[in-house]
């Protein structure tokens, strides 16, 4: 917006803020999986943040969000665990909390909604947080990195930062349920016809693939429940994507990533081979913004995404 300022205002403005204080700061909640089996997601998120000129300050003492499982035993515990995380963010002056996992996004937003909707639940949470001197004031907003890219950076700006456009790589978006549903919890975009991932794919020079599987479930949460079910859900969705011409998949969720990357091989028996390489959202955006491919942990994926990148002359 600086172009609308008068020259003297611009001067004052740049005088008042040092470069580092202009850098936007966010509370960063990486979630468990990005710290455990998907470290490449954590690393590529930090590299992308550098490129974007934003500062992600990790909430290092935050706990698991409950991941839909704590709810299965005790909804109050899931809610208060998240209240503790929000209290930490507030104490650090970081009430804008960014996630990199669809499931974290959905469950943290749901917990926050429950707290903000009901004084009784907020009091319950604060009476427990008070035992260790913490308090949640209710100021936190939880957003996914995907929404940050569009709301805070902007698609035009993002597009202008691209140094290695994806050469029309045909990428199938895979949202992950909890970033879109239920709509009353997320509501950032239509859960039935979201297009944020498509917009980002286009902005970085790729071609989004439209297919029925994009808002469906990867089955991650029932992987260990019954043989073959989650595998088949992966196979079904990847089959549709492949048949619609996808060359790769992008997902904002590490749980979806584990399922899509890990289970396509086993799903081949029922759904045929698909072998679609799956990118974490920040990996592909960082690649387009010029982060060296070897820093993005692409070698950690079971279906090697470097093959298609070499074919498309995106990496050597």
């Amino acid at each position: 917006m600086s172009s609308t300022l008068l020259p003297e205002e611009q001067a004052t403005d740049s005088h008042r803020h040092s470069k580092s204080s202009q850098m936007r700061r966010y509370g960063f909640f990486p979630g468990c999986v990005a710290k455990e089996s998907c470290k490449e997601l954590f690393n590529s998120t930090m590299l992308l943040a550098d490129k974007l000129g934003i500062e992600l300050i990790e909430l290092t003492a935050a706990s698991c969000c409950g991941a839909s499982v704590v709810n299965d035993t005790n909804r109050d515990i899931a809610r208060v665990l998240n209240a503790r995380t929000y209290a930490q963010a507030e104490a650090l002056g970081l009430d804008d909390v960014i996630t990199i996992c669809s499931t974290c996004t959905g469950h943290m937003r749901a917990a926050n909604m429950e707290l903000l909707e009901s004084e009784e639940r907020m009091n319950q949470a604060n009476s427990i947080l008070g035992k260790f001197g913490a308090k949640y004031e209710g100021s936190v907003m939880v957003r996914h990195l995907l929404w940050l890219l569009i709301d805070d950076i902007g698609l035009d700006k993002l597009s202008s930062m691209v140094v290695r456009p994806l050469n029309g790589l045909r990428v199938a978006p895979f949202y992950g349920c909890h970033i879109i549903r239920p709509e009353k919890v997320n509501g950032w975009e239509s859960a039935r016809n979201p297009h944020s991932l498509e917009d980002v794919i286009t902005a970085i020079g790729g071609e989004p693939v439209d297919y029925a599987g994009k808002t469906r479930c990867c089955g991650f949460h029932i992987q260990l429940e019954k043989d073959g079910v989650a595998t088949s859900m992966v196979g079904q969705n990847m089959r549709i994507a492949k048949d619609r011409g996808a060359e790769a998949v992008i997902t904002p969720c590490p749980l979806c990533h584990l399922a899509l990357d890990g289970y396509q091989q086993d799903a081949a028996a029922r759904w045929g081979r698909t072998d679609l390489p799956t990118f974490h959202l920040p990996q592909l955006v960082a690649l387009a913004l010029g982060v060296p491919a070897e820093k993005l942990g692409l070698n950690k994926h079971l279906i090697d995404p470097r093959t298609i990148l070499v074919e498309r002359e995106l990496i050597a």
């Binding site: 455990e36 290092t60 003492a61 706990s63 515990i77 503790r84 427990i128 035992k131 260790f132």
Partner: peptide
């Protein structure tokens, strides 16, 4: 692929607070 989660996790800072939440509820 070097993608195994660690066999053991170091507890987060102030994990006692998490335990307090569980024990209270």
């Amino acid at each position: 692929k070097g993608k195994m989660p660690p066999p053991f996790l170091r507890p987060i800072p102030k994990v006692d607070e998490v335990r307090t939440i569980f024990e209270s509820l």
